[in-house]
C-alpha cells in the first residue's frame, strides 16, 4: 500500500496533480491511499514552500510542478 499525499491549497494545479497521481497508481495496479493536505502549517512541515507537491510514502517527490501520470509512475516504483 502506497500513501500518496498531495500538498496544496486546492487550486486547479493541486487537483490536477491529485488526478495524475491517482491515474498513475491505478494504471500500475497498485494499492494506494491518497491524502490531500491543504493546511499551510502542515505543508511547511515537509520543508515545502511552493505548492503543489507530491509526497509518496513520506518522501517528497515533486515540488511546484504537475508531472503527468507517466512521470508519476516512475516515482511510484
Amino acid at each position: 500500500m502506497k500513501t500518496l499525499q498531495i500538498l496544496g491549497t486546492g487550486c486547479p494545479k493541486c487537483k490536477k496533480l491529485a488526478e495524475n497521481a491517482e491515474a498513475a497508481a491505478k494504471a500500475m495496479g497498485i494499492e494506494y491511499a491518497i491524502e490531500k493536505i491543504s493546511d499551510l502549517k502542515e505543508i511547511m512541515k515537509f520543508g515545502i514552500m511552493i505548492t503543489p507537491a507530491l509526497v509518496v510514502d513520506g518522501e517528497v517527490k515533486v515540488v511546484g510542478k504537475v508531472p503527468d501520470a507517466e512521470a508519476i509512475k516512475a516515482m511510484l516504483r
Binding site: F46, G47, I48, M49, I50, E59, V60, V62, V63, G64
Partner: peptide, 11 residues
C-alpha cells in the same frame, strides 16, 4: 531537509 532539496531540484 528533503522537501527543501526537492524544492530546489524542481525549481
Amino acid at each position: 531537509i528533503p522537501g527543501m532539496i526537492q524544492t530546489a531540484r524542481d525549481a
